[in-house]
Design a protein around this nucleic acid. Structure first.
Lengths: 135, 135
DNA sequence: AATTACCCTATCGGAGTAGTAGGGTAATGA
DNA sequence: TCATTACCCTACTACTCCGATAGGGTAATT
């Protein structure tokens, strides 16, 4: 299941990306439009900024804005950074790999092999999606 | 992420399905072979029995056994019943649908549309997999 | 009748999530 | 300059779920 945090991050990014002008968007506006708790959204936007997706401008007329064109923001990267692994079990994760403490042999594990297939099909979708695609 | 419960359930089922003879398999044997807490496994096997996947036999020489051929046990069904929804957000779940409290219009939600694609690609994998396929 | 193995209830610590509280700091415009 | 606006940061809390444990009860074999 996708966390609310990730969902909010996606919604906020699409909201910002949808703006015609490059003007910064205020957090209050996003939180009202998308029905997200204002303070909670602040924390998320801050994360997105620290990840290099957003820039911010303080003072009157300030807010958040995209640092890259929406077409260059890939869904896979975003989800991995906010949500964590794409894979459903750590032992098939490409970016967050962890060995199972119980499995002596991954190659012989039926769950392992099944989850690789699931992971790959999910990746296929996410690797071909940018922020621009979902606006 | 897949819960340990589901992973254990899959492992237990494959273990039972691998037996040549139709003889019942004891919980103790499964828990030792697959490194699963014995008591916890008991609860899982009980669930699988109540779901109609397994039968059980008490007394000496008892244990659990498959009620259906492995080829008729579909991964989608199993995962849905043990783990819950396949979808990553409730609003795109086919079997566990729930409306988002924040979204006024699902059709306009970018997250919604993206997650439908992810769900469908996952389903495509799981719908073509039976227990027999992953042994 | 004793053994074996299934069956059930209750409980618990730990981890993570969503959200709140409250304040601080920097940069605009007037 | 100075007040306003809006970003920035820390800490805390209520809540839920998960994996696991404890301890016993019951039914069916040999």
């Amino acid at each position: 299941m996708l966390s609310r945090k990730t969902k909010y991050a996606l919604k906020a990014l699409t909201y910002i990306a949808r703006q015609q002008e490059k003007k910064p968007v205020q957090t209050a506006i996003i939180s009202e439009s998308e029905n997200i708790s204002h303070k909670y959204l602040e924390a998320i936007l801050l994360t997105l900024r620290n990840l290099g997706y957003l820039g911010s401008k303080k003072g009157k007329g300030g807010g958040y804005y995209l640092l890259k064109p929406a077409s260059e923001i890939q869904m896979v990267d975003l989800l991995r950074k906010i949500e964590g692994p794409i894979a459903l079990v750590p032992c098939v994760s490409l970016n967050y790999y962890e060995k199972c403490d119980d499995c002596p042999d991954e190659g012989a594990c039926s769950v392992h092999l099944l989850m690789i297939e699931v992971r790959d099909s999910t990746l296929k979708v996410l690797e071909n999606k940018s922020l621009a695609d979902i606006i």
